[in-house]
Design a protein around this nucleic acid. Structure first.
Lengths: 251, 251
DNA sequence: CGCTGCGTTGAGCCGACTCAAAGGTTGTGG
DNA sequence: CCACAACCTTTGAGTCGGCTCAACGCAGCG
């Protein structure tokens, strides 16, 4: 539960959070954590595994709108009381903590720092969403693929899920396609291109980054949107450390 | 300023908001309201005109990531103290209200309903962002164009900016292209297709919807993500009113 | 051991892009 | 008030990235 504190900042009132956790359940692969139209009355946190937010068009086209890695919250949107406009589903066997909303509400008002952390988490998600829109709208398949992989790598690094430059990434090529707005066939060709450039090695369960400098440069990656904690930034995105102020673009 | 209350819900402590407004300034067309890298210490609200959030890649490709219509807030992200990962610029002459952050902070803690309204506004923005990602990732140019136009029409309706099925929309085709992830040339062809279907009439300053039912159907529009107030929904999206529970999609 | 789902490969096609040039508008300065 | 300049829109020709359709290989699983 305190995994979230890695992503943002929280202090020693973590105990309050500890006490909150109601249930910790394992959820099988390809299982809906919450479905479109539902009005969630609980808050779910992904502790282990991989999940996604997605929207489906009436004719079956699907767009994956974000991935959830351990420590991410399913329903930052919960309190609104409005029905969800999208679904959340597991992409692997997961461990999920559930917290009822009333209890959390109490903790939030008692510990403003935690409330602040939630707000920060929401903003971080939005920043990622914006970057995805740029990715799909303005990068070609090769850049897009590289960008997604490096983002996922960094996000796994933040929550301590990197070993030996390898992360668990149990994604189907169809799922990658739905995240990038591509077809499965073309995802395959693009992945192969990355493989034969010696940049990554990947199969359905793992991603190994062989040339992180090159992956980053193919992606045209500017990591500032991820708000990496200093240790991770120093390790994987040294360019960020030199000067925090990025260039100002013209209109 | 209370325009925002139209978009979400707020009560009679609007007076507190009234008192807050520090400056109301007109800003010329094509002017940056906030630039990437900046750490905003004020909050800006668009009162009149049209603006956009955008990100630019090093090689000049640009993606417009959202449009701001009157009543929208530029920097819901402000409090984080982090540098902005994107810019905000006017797309027309605008009127902008500026509020210093400390004052707002005070009002927010005194009036939790207002704080709640801000949170709701953030979530509404995110919902739109998700829908844009679907739009760019999974719809073709024709659907995409129709979707954007109808969304903008509805959002203008919410803030009372529709007259005679016409909205002010001072957008360049290049700006539309950057919002939809298309080229200007193709935007032109797509707009012409919509025009010659008799669905819309548009020039650089105005959009007139001639066949809203058809525009909606081309777009494959599901308005639930916009969380329309009941009166607007009844007027323009009657389908929403019959049953609030949309279909559940499979994984 | 056969089924089912996923990865891989090839052929052919089409949507959207680039390049290029010609009309329209708008605004500005003479 | 006109003429020019700058910017935007429109149109055409040609190209290409990414899609569809289709088949085949492979692996995990019952």
């Amino acid at each position: 539960m305190r995994l979230r504190s890695l992503g943002s900042l929280s202090l020693l009132d973590e105990q309050a959070l500890e006490g909150l956790t109601q249930t910790v359940a394992s959820v099988p692969d390809q299982h809906e954590l919450m479905s479109e139209g539902e009005c969630p009355d609980v808050l779910k946190v992904l502790l282990e595994g991989l999940a996604c937010r997605y929207k489906i068009l009436p004719d079956g086209r699907r767009q994956i709108v974000s991935f959830l890695v351990p420590g991410d919250v399913c329903d930052l949107e919960a309190r609104s009381g409005r029905p969800l406009d999208h679904g959340v589903a597991t992409l692997a066997p997961c461990i999920v903590a559930t917290v009822d909303w009333e209890g959390l509400e109490a903790v939030l008002s008692a510990h403003p720092t935690i409330a602040e952390a939630f707000r920060t988490a929401t903003l971080a998600d939005v920043a990622i969403l914006r970057e995805w829109l740029v990715n799909v709208g303005r990068r070609d398949a090769y850049e897009r693929m590289a960008h997604l992989l490096w983002e996922l790598f960094l996000r796994h690094a933040v929550v301590g899920r990197v070993q030996d430059n390898v992360i668990d990434l149990p994604l189907t090529q169809m799922e990658i396609a739905d995240a990038l707005g591509l077809s499965t066939v073309y995802v395959n060709k693009t992945v192969n291109r990355l493989r034969s450039s010696g940049v990554v090695a990947m199969d359905r369960r793992q991603l190994r980054v062989l040339a992180m400098e090159e992956l980053r440069s193919i992606a045209g990656f500017d990591a500032s949107y991820l708000r990496l904690p200093p240790d991770i930034a120093a390790r994987y995105e040294p360019a960020l450390m030199s000067d925090a102020r990025p260039r100002i673009g013209p209109i």
